[in-house]
């Protein structure tokens, strides 16, 4: 993926990076200490990735990093050099239909203030990729890395079940 042969050890204050976010390639010069979450939010203006703690606990900042759920507040932007990232904005366009996970959250009232929601949806996306047919206990265990202060999780769990079912059906239809 990486085409340039930058030597990271030579970077002191700033570094050039090339990151693919939601399918678009971005080349930026960033301070080495810039958090990935701040890079996404304030350099790329993808403000759907939220920041609730910067301590790696709340999960609001969860994005997909080469397909895996990671906490953008625990990484530096420079670590994303050459990588592919998916944020909540990559799940459904402004006018396109909601992704089945998003749709399930709406139907099951899986969000209130919506602050935790993008991070939870990204985590769920990764979870269902790994375990397309999770039990309730597995769902609750997997979700325990994301805090939500509004919903009490019950409707989130219901939403994940519904999304899992629909995604399984979709896959079956594809196959």
């Amino acid at each position: 993926m990486r085409e340039r042969d930058d030597d990271l050890s030579q970077c002191v204050e700033e570094c050039e990076i090339a990151v693919t976010v939601n399918g678009n390639r971005h080349e930026h010069t960033v301070p080495v200490r810039l958090l990935l979450s701040d890079f996404l939010r304030h350099e790329l203006h993808l403000t759907g990735t939220h920041v609730g703690c910067e301590q790696g606990v709340c999960g609001c900042c969860t994005v997909l990093f080469n397909g895996e759920a990671v906490r953008a507040c625990l990484m530096f932007a420079v670590q994303a050099d050459g990588m592919a990232i998916t944020t909540i904005e990559g799940m459904a366009g402004v006018n396109s239909e909601l992704h089945p996970i998003q749709q399930a959250f709406r139907e099951k009232h899986g969000l209130q203030c919506g602050f935790c929601t993008p991070g939870i949806i990204m985590s769920v996306h990764a979870m269902l990729h790994e375990h397309p047919d999770p039990t309730e206990e597995e769902i609750r265990h997997e979700l325990s890395g994301n805090l939500c202060r509004c919903t009490g999780y019950q409707n989130i769990v219901e939403a994940v079940k519904l999304a899992a079912e629909r995604l399984r059906l979709q896959h079956m239809e594809v196959e």
Binding site: L46, T47, G48, E89, M91, Q102, R106, G114, T117
Partner: peptide, 21 residues
């Protein structure tokens, strides 16, 4: 009734204070 606020929030298109630049 399903929430009118959801489609925006679910897409990550909410507008919280820190989203204002």
């Amino acid at each position: 009734v399903q929430r009118l606020e959801d489609p925006r929030l679910l897409r990550g298109r909410g507008n919280y204070v820190d989203d204002i630049d």
